[in-house]
Design a protein around this nucleic acid. Structure first.
Lengths: 205, 205
DNA sequence: AATATAAATGAATATTCATTCATTTTTAAC
DNA sequence: GTTAAAAATGAATGAATATTCATTTATATT
């Protein structure tokens, strides 16, 4: 017996472009047509692949959706922390995260829209995403901010809602390009800063 | 010819319980199983009705979803204005709306969850909901608040995002009963007030 | 070059889907 | 009671659905 059997096997290599194509097209179809617009056969055709091929990469439709969500969730949280560290001042640290989030979403609007669609759908099969690194960073960051008197002490959900709720709401207006009042809303850096300053004021002790 | 033909016709009356049952069960199925969990045949069975009956009330599946959304949207905006008038002080007026929204959502969580699911889905067939009464009220309210120096002047989308973004975010934590940190989050009146005071501070000039 | 092994496939299956239609049921007006 | 007309139905239809499986294809190792 050779325990290296798998690694040493004379196997055909996976075409990684195929998996990427499946992922990309799936996200596109869901964002454009909704969850019920995603059928395995249409997806196969769009990704230029046999329906059976999808089942090599994913156990079934549900698994495909979950893996898609986990993948987006993971990279989104990694991107959010770029250039961030918990020793930063509260204002600078939060601003970096705002900027990171907006930049990522502007670059990959479909990822964000898929994420939001999934988050609001009922079938959340509690994701096995590993967010511990992110959570650790945020915990430290908030502890420091409270200690330094830059922020009021509050429950994490309240912090989260006040610190990010308005950002996400503005991003949705920006992406949907549908305003409350009629004309469309472009989220410029200047507008982002205006809202950010208000949020900082809100969170101050 | 009699132009009152329709009104005077010897017709069978509609069973309004049926329509209500269809609406209620549809919302329930969507909230529990997602958009792709709603099939016309399953809905018919759940509402104790023939599939063909659904097509008397709704043109097709899409029309059913749109009418459902419009109906929820309409009542939600009506409820938001209960006890409200645009001459109220900024703080009192906004607080009434926060309370109204939370009360309605707590009473009809399924309506809210359906609304959020629909809002984040792509198929928004621009709703023909009449929100002009609501919009007029808000416009006056905000103009007054700015004039009285209770609130900074800002774009409507920024106002909306700062004024309600955190509320909706907290409500989602509350309903999903899934916290960032593990244990569940109950949105009590005290917590609502804490967040509200922060938002008021943010919006002040 | 031969080989073993996983990748990739296309056709097939049984199921479920939205929608329709000929028919029956109900009821307000006569 | 009769009648007209819409409400309500159950069965039927054809299209689309997720998933499977017997083959074929490609390739890293030998």
């Amino acid at each position: 017996m050779n325990i290296h059997l798998y690694l040493r096997s004379k196997m055909r290599t996976r075409d990684e472009n195929k998996e990427a194509a499946i992922r990309e097209k799936a996200m596109e179809m869901i964002v454009n047509e909704g969850f019920d617009g995603l059928s395995m056969q249409k997806l196969a055709k769009a990704a230029n692949v046999s329906p059976a091929t999808i089942y090599i990469y994913y156990k079934n439709r549900e698994d495909l959706l979950n893996q898609l969500y986990n993948h987006v969730q993971q990279t989104f949280h990694e991107v959010a922390l770029e250039g961030f560290n918990p020793e930063l001042s509260f204002e600078e640290g939060l601003w970096i995260q705002w900027k990171n989030r907006l930049k990522f979403i502007s670059k990959y609007p479909k990822h964000f829209q898929f994420q939001e669609q999934f988050r609001n759908s009922p079938c959340i099969n509690h994701s096995d995403v590993n967010l511990s690194h992110f959570k650790e960073n945020m915990k430290l960051f908030i502890m420091n901010a409270i200690k330094k008197g830059e922020m009021k002490r509050m429950e994490p959900e309240i912090f989260w809602s006040v610190a990010y709720g308005s950002l996400y709401s503005m991003i949705k207006f920006h992406l949907q390009e549908i305003s409350i009042m009629g004309n469309s809303f472009k989220l410029t850096d200047a507008k982002l800063k205006i809202a950010f300053d208000m949020v900082i004021k809100a969170l101050k002790p």
